[in-house]
C-alpha cells in the first residue's frame, strides 16, 4: 500500500528542438500515512512531479505504482486514481464555481457517482475538517476571505475521501494567520484520518515544523530524501541551489562554530531552545 515511482522521466516537447527534461530518473516510495514535504524552487519540477502522481501528466519513461498497481497498464482507471490521490493545486480558490459553498464541495463526490444526499454528507464532513461550520454552507464562495476560500477548495478535494492528499503550495499568498490555520488543520487531518499528506512548498520553516520526511528537488532530479534534520544538515549545498534551510539551522551551525556545545541539527524553535538552554546549564 503505497505510492512508488521507478525511474520516472518527463520530457517536454519530446523530439523537437525545444526538448526540456522536466523530470529525470525519479525514484521513491511513499508508505501509507506519511507526512511528506516536497521542496524545490520554482521550476525544479516539483509541480510537474505531483501531477504525475494522480495521472494528470503521463511520464515519458518509467513506472508509477499506486497500491502495487501499475497506473500505466492498459485499462487502469485514471478517474479512480484521481479520487484516491487528491491533488489541491496552487491557488485552488481559482477553481470555485458554484453558487454556494456546499454545492461546490459536492462537485467531486458527484463526479464519483454518488447520490446527491451522500455527496452532501461527504461535503459537510469535509467542510468540518477544514474548520468551516454550518453557517458557511449556503454562502457564496466568492464572498469569503482568501483563507476561507482556500479552505473550501481544499474541502472540495477532501470530500472525495482520498487516501493520499497532495497540496501544491497551500499557503502561497496567505498571511501568517491563514498559513498557520491551514497547516495546523492539515496536521490534524493527518493525525486523525491517517491519510498520506504530501506538502509541496518552498518554505523550509513551514515544512520543518510539520513533516516527517523531506524530498528536495533540483533541476528535475531528487537532490536529498530523508528526515528534516538530515536534509538540513546540507544547508550549504541547499543554499547553492537557491534554497535555504530554516533560519534556526543557520543559527545552530554558527553557535556550534563559535564553540557552543549545541546540537547543530535542531531545526525548529523548540528544539533550538532546548539544546541552547542545555548548553548553558552545563556550565
Amino acid at each position: 500500500m503505497s505510492l512508488k515511482a521507478e525511474h520516472i522521466n518527463y520530457i517536454y516537447s519530446a523530439g523537437t528542438a525545444y526538448e526540456i527534461a522536466a523530470l529525470r530518473d525519479i525514484n521513491f516510495e511513499i508508505p501509507d500515512g506519511q507526512f511528506l514535504g516536497l521542496i524545490g524552487h520554482t521550476g525544479s519540477g516539483k509541480s510537474t512531479l505531483v501531477q504525475h502522481l494522480n495521472g494528470l501528466i503521463k511520464a515519458t519513461g518509467g513506472q508509477l505504482y499506486f497500491n502495487g498497481e501499475d497506473i500505466y497498464r492498459e485499462g487502469y482507471s485514471m478517474r479512480e486514481l484521481r479520487s484516491q490521490v487528491g491533488l489541491v493545486f496552487q491557488y485552488p480558490e481559482h477553481q470555485l464555481f458554484e453558487v454556494d459553498v456546499l454545492s461546490d464541495v459536492c462537485f467531486g463526490p458527484l463526479n464519483q457517482g454518488m447520490s446527491k444526499e451522500a455527496a452532501k454528507e461527504r461535503a459537510r464532513a469535509a467542510l468540518r475538517m477544514v474548520g468551516l461550520g454550518e453557517e458557511y454552507e449556503s454562502r457564496s464562495p466568492f464572498e469569503l476571505s482568501g483563507g476561507q476560500k482556500r479552505r473550501v477548495a481544499i474541502a472540495g478535494v477532501l470530500a472525495m475521501e482520498p487516501q493520499v492528499l497532495i497540496l501544491d503550495e497551500p499557503t502561497a499568498g496567505l498571511d501568517p494567520r491563514g498559513r498557520d490555520e491551514i497547516l495546523d488543520q492539515l496536521a490534524a487531518l493527518h493525525r486523525e484520518k491517517k491519510i498520506t499528506v504530501i506538502l509541496v512548498s518552498h518554505s523550509m520553516e513551514d515544512v520543518a515544523r510539520y513533516v516527517e520526511r523531506i524530498i528536495v528537488m533540483n533541476q528535475g532530479k531528487i537532490l536529498y530524501d530523508g528526515e528534516p534534520r538530515e536534509v538540513f544538515r546540507h544547508y550549504e549545498e541547499l543554499e547553492q541551489v537557491g534554497l535555504a534551510a530554516p533560519q534556526v539551522t543557520y543559527i545552530m551551525h554558527a553557535l556550534k562554530a563559535s564553540g557552543l556545545d549545541v546540537d547543530e541539527n535542531a531545526t525548529t524553535i523548540r528544539e533550538a531552545r532546548e539544546t541552547i538552554l542545555q548548553a548553558f546549564r552545563k556550565e
Binding site: R82, V88, F89, H94, Q95, V157, M160
Partner: peptide, 16 residues
C-alpha cells in the same frame, strides 16, 4: 495558461 490550470484542477476533482 489559466484555462489549462483550471481544467486540470477540475479534472483532479473528477471532472470529465
Amino acid at each position: 495558461e489559466e484555462t489549462d490550470k483550471i481544467m486540470k484542477a477540475q479534472m483532479a476533482r473528477g471532472a470529465d
